[in-house]
Computed example of a mutant assay.
Amino acid sequence: MSEGTAKPAHVAAGELQNRQFRYFDYVMVAFVVILLLSNIIGASKRSFLDLPLLGHWPFGAGILFFPISYVIGDVLTEVYGYARARRVIWAGFVAMLFMILMCIVVVALPPDTGWTGQAAYEQIFGFGAIPRIAIASIIAFWAGEFVNSYVLARMKLMTQGRHLWTRTIGSTIFGEGVDSLIFYPLAFLGAPGWTVSQVLVIVFTQWFLKVSWEVLLTPFTYLVVNFLKRREGVDIFDEGTDFTPFRTRV
């Protein structure tokens, strides 16, 4: 068979510690870019849909794109294994910290005389006024992504690599569940204008919408996973993997 069409070999993750993959860096960049943009652009706008029976349905614009980071997280773990996905999650975590630091510094810089954009900057990028939201976002991302990756890697071993859809959707149910359970209560519980019931409603509605996105994107996930496995020539299983999140070495 020609390169790119041969069936990928089943290998344990530990056998490929020094292996260089041709597409890994691109997938990592896509993950970090979508993570940052969905938080810095999408999170700042609230929109709505007019749904049949339900009527006016408000939502944060970031929900349209943030779940794609979970899809890419699934691809990373499924194709490259938990250890490499773990490195990417830490890269995203550090990138988010730097993004918040940069927002704080840029907003705090005194505006030049005659420049009228300071109020807009403070409204969009002003983490200083709402630090708990930034902290909640980072903690929820870190925990949710690691749960997502861990569940998928374990399910791949349990299913012996069969039924990809069960582990992409199953891992998202747990990962997005942890993300929502941490972020919304930590960010909004006890804040002015938020009741306990409102926080609970948004936890479950946002979780449901994010998981629904994963279900809708399942055909796309299959295409990407199958393409990368053929091109990389391996099908990695996390046999003997150390699943601690507190390391970055492959």
Score class of each variant (00 low, 15 high):
Ser2Val: 04
Thr5His: 07
Thr5Gly: 02
Thr5Ala: 11
Ala9Asn: 02
Ala9Pro: 03
Gly14Ala: 15
Asn18Met: 08
Phe21Lys: 12
Arg22Ser: 10
Asp25Glu: 13
Asp25Trp: 15
Tyr26Asn: 08
Val32Leu: 07
Leu36Phe: 12
Ser38Pro: 04
Ala43Asn: 10
Ala43Ser: 11
Ala43His: 09
Ser44Val: 15
Ser47Asn: 13
Leu51Ile: 01
Pro52Ile: 07
His56Met: 04
His56Arg: 04
Pro58Val: 02
Ala61Cys: 13
Gly62Thr: 14
Gly62Met: 12
Ile63Thr: 14
Phe65Glu: 08
Phe65Lys: 02
Ser69Pro: 00
Gly73Glu: 11
Asp74Trp: 08
Val75Arg: 11
Glu78Asp: 01
Glu78Trp: 02
Val79Cys: 02
Arg87Leu: 05
Ile89Pro: 00
Ala95Phe: 11
Ala95Cys: 09
Leu97Asn: 03
Met99Tyr: 02
Leu101Glu: 09
Met102Phe: 10
Met102Asp: 13
Val107Met: 13
Thr113Tyr: 13
Ala120Thr: 08
Ala120Tyr: 11
Gln123Asn: 05
Ala129Asn: 12
Ile130Ala: 15
Pro131Gly: 11
Pro131Lys: 11
Arg132Trp: 08
Ala134Thr: 07
Ala134Arg: 10
Ser137Trp: 08
Ile138Val: 09
Ile138Leu: 06
Ile139Asp: 05
Ala143Gly: 05
Gly144Glu: 07
Glu145Ala: 00
Tyr150Val: 01
Leu152Phe: 03
Arg154Glu: 06
Met155Glu: 08
Leu157Asp: 00
Leu157Ser: 02
Gln160Trp: 10
Gln160Ile: 09
Arg162Ile: 11
His163Asp: 11
Leu164Phe: 04
Leu164Val: 02
Leu164Gly: 04
Trp165Pro: 09
Arg167Lys: 06
Gly170Asn: 06
Thr172Tyr: 01
Gly175Ala: 14
Glu176Arg: 00
Gly177Met: 07
Ser180Glu: 09
Ser180Thr: 07
Leu186His: 05
Phe188Gln: 03
Ser197Glu: 15
Ser197Thr: 14
Val199His: 07
Leu200Asn: 10
Ile202Val: 14
Val203Asp: 12
Thr205Arg: 14
Trp207Asp: 10
Lys210Glu: 06
Val211His: 04
Val211Cys: 05
Ser212Ile: 15
Val215Met: 11
Val215Arg: 05
Val215Thr: 03
Leu217Tyr: 11
Thr221Phe: 13
Tyr222His: 15
Tyr222Gln: 08
Tyr222Leu: 15
Leu223Asp: 01
Leu223Gly: 01
Phe227Leu: 15
Lys229Arg: 13
Glu232Ala: 02
Glu232Lys: 07
Gly233Ser: 09
Val234Thr: 10
Ile236Ala: 07
Asp238Phe: 00
Glu239Phe: 06
Gly240His: 01
Thr241His: 03
Thr244Tyr: 01
Thr244Ala: 00
Pro245Thr: 05
Pro245Met: 01
Arg247Cys: 09
Thr248Ala: 02
